[in-house]
């Protein structure tokens, strides 16, 4: 079986982003970019399935600017076999990403697509579910455990009230949650090796997908900032302030 893992290049999770003063967006100049953390977890899971003999090949794909090649190389250095870059400088919405991924799935016929549950830049949490819908496949979202069996995959999901396990018929879409695994770091020799692994370049047009935005972004602004309050000297003072000043006890 082949596993396809879509990975997105996003602002590193440690970066505190800045909103442009003119409201036109977020300032991405000279900001550290990394693989979306949930996608690292997805790559790791695919590699573990391969190492357990349950999959033969791990293919990673990214839709984005030429620099997304770095993100793909990171995935290759972790151990993925091959990469596909769908190059575009446009901001592509989850629905169009899902349509492009559908095209790749049709060409590659993977048994499993493992995505992150959420890209930490747009915080959409949509693409995996949309891809499953477009393919007419089942979905195991927010996975904290994945077990492949004959013709199906058991996915334990992190839900609001605890954990739920569903059995999804293969081929299937999985999206990762934080507890699924701890992604490995790429070793230096593997980083060197990754430079020679195959990376194919395409464009959204190759899949016949119109990437025109459906959502018009009218404005991007700073959230209302909270200001630091006071330090209290003791538990007694804290309780007193909560009772008399804040009125919440």
């Amino acid at each position: 079986m082949k596993i396809l893992v879509p990975v997105k290049r996003v602002v590193d999770f440690n970066v505190k982003i800045r909103v442009k003063p003119d409201g036109s967006g977020v300032d991405l100049q000279n900001v550290k970019m990394s693989m979306n953390p949930f996608d690292e977890i997805a790559v790791e899971e695919a590699l573990r399935l391969k190492e357990a003999g349950k999959a033969e090949e791990v293919v990673v794909v990214s839709i984005g600017p030429a620099k997304a090649e770095e993100t793909l190389r990171t995935a290759l250095a972790m151990g993925a076999d091959r990469a596909i870059l769908v190059e575009t400088d446009d901001a592509v919405e989850p629905l169009a990403i899902a349509k492009i991924l559908k095209g790749i799935v049709e060409a590659e016929s993977p048994g499993l697509v493992i995505l992150g549950k959420q890209a930490i830049d747009d915080d959409s949490n949509q693409t995996g579910q949309m891809l499953a819908a477009l393919l007419g496949w089942g979905q195991g979202t927010f996975a904290s455990k994945v077990e492949l069996a004959d013709g199906q995959v058991a996915v334990t999901r992190e839900i609001d009230g605890g954990l739920q396990t569903v059995s999804v018929r293969l081929p299937a879409v999985i999206t990762t949650d934080l507890r699924l695994n701890e992604p490995r770091y790429a070793s230096l020799p593997n980083i060197m090796k990754a430079k020679k692994k195959p990376l194919e370049k395409t464009t959204p047009a190759d899949f016949g997908v119109a990437i025109a935005a459906r959502l018009r972004i009218l404005k991007t602004e700073e959230p209302v900032r909270r200001i630091a309050g006071v330090k209290v000297g003791s538990v007694a003072e804290l309780v007193d302030k909560l009772k008399t000043e804040a009125g919440v006890l």
Binding site: D123, Q126, M130, L218, K219, E221, E222, P223
Partner: peptide, 29 residues
Amino acid sequence: AQVSDIIEVLAPDIFKRPIYAGNAIQTVQ
């Protein structure tokens, strides 16, 4: 398209939603 996590309704087709862990608020139509 889906509009995820709206926090304000400005018009029947215009909404505010947080991005980047709430460090920016987008107005989308």
